[in-house]
Design a protein around this nucleic acid. Structure first.
Lengths: 198, 198
DNA sequence: CAAGCTAACTAACGCGCGTTAGTTTCGCAA
DNA sequence: TTGCGAAACTAACGCGCGTTAGTTAGCTTG
């Protein structure tokens, strides 16, 4: 029995360590040696659990962007009221950025460092979500329950406001992720000047 | 007379090239050789116009964060109406992020890569602006013209919404920087549920 | 208890980075 | 026309990176 406890490193542990460091220092600012160090193994041993540093980034971005779309479609699936749909879409989007802060930071900071075709695929998903959110707002405007000069601008404002939660939210802070998400749905509905009572 | 025009590289040109590349690929993702290449000189020649790569980042961050504070204080200086103050503070902050996109991207992405004591100084300025914005909102709530559950949350939402303009704004797009800034002031006043007519 | 697989290790590679030293070119002023 | 200084150049450095090869240790299974 040695002094340090014997740990079994899994590929999930490698990904998790990479996630933390990428979020802190960025993809290019993180060395594999740092990931190995947090796992108490030597750098080459990482290759028992991954194919390359690039693959770590790709996995993070793929899983996250896929999750965003899944969240969205589930959230708006069973209602057609524009206010309820925007409420739900904002709620899950805001909540994700509070509960998956590291993933959000990495995706927004380093997704441009992906190699093709993964960068295109990621942009496709991002555009899909953006287009869907804008559509939600346009629907509300058409239904006469929202008032905005530009659905595109309002959509940008709402989405980016949610994305940025990942930059300041702290799990041990004054608000829970659920509370923040709820508050942000109010901001969103105010931005589009939604008529009262959802 | 050679085929390529003889250019006189200035330290401003170096900073500008660095700004563009840092904004595109990030500080750690940009090599000095790339900066040199866009200026049509060899990498070591850069050192006639700068002290180090780090200094480039430091200059960008220092000038930008200083500018944000100057903007803010000038904007709110000569009025005491909460709505006018928040309107003006949001207007200049939003406009800056549309007109100085590269600077904003670099500061928000790579300021953490600064070495001390510059990182602390930068965080101090950031906090000062955040605190001041929150104060503006708290003042409006105290004056009974705003309604929010948390001034801190509303402040985060407004500031980060403006910051993110740098991520999507294009000078040749559907809106001018002034138009976007004006629209975002409306969003801000809606977020705090400002009573009508400013 | 032996075999085998998994996952750790050490050693080493080629490369590109930021940076320094020393040299050459060239426009401008005396 | 000559001299000088600014700013370019080439050459080279040490370092740390991501990655590969080959080897060793140690559980698990028959």
């Amino acid at each position: 029995m040695s002094t340090d406890t014997r740990v079994t490193v899994t590929s999930e542990a490698v990904l998790d360590a990479a996630l933390t460091l990428f979020a802190q220092r960025g993809y290019h600012g993180t060395a594999l040696s740092q990931i190995a160090e947090t796992l108490n193994i030597r750098t080459p041993s990482l290759y028992n659990h991954m194919r390359s540093k690039h693959e770590l980034l790709r996995t993070i971005v793929d899983e996250t962007t896929a999750g965003v779309l899944t969240d969205f479609h589930r959230a708006v699936a069973d209602t057609s009221d524009p206010r309820e749909r925007l409420y739900r879409a904002t709620l899950v989007y805001a909540r994700r950025h509070a509960t998956h802060r590291r993933e959000a930071l990495v995706v927004n900071r380093d997704a441009a460092s992906l190699d093709q075709p993964h960068r295109d695929e990621m942009q496709r998903r991002r555009r899909e979500h953006g287009h869907a959110m804008r559509g939600l707002i346009a629907d509300g405007v058409a239904a006469g329950v929202y008032t905005v000069d530009s659905a595109a601008l309002a959509s940008f404002a709402i989405r980016e406001m949610c994305v940025s939660i990942a930059r300041w939210f702290r799990p041990d802070g004054d608000f829970t992720a659920a509370e923040v998400a709820e508050q942000y749905t109010r901001f969103a509905l105010r931005i589009v000047n939604a008529s009262p009572e959802r």
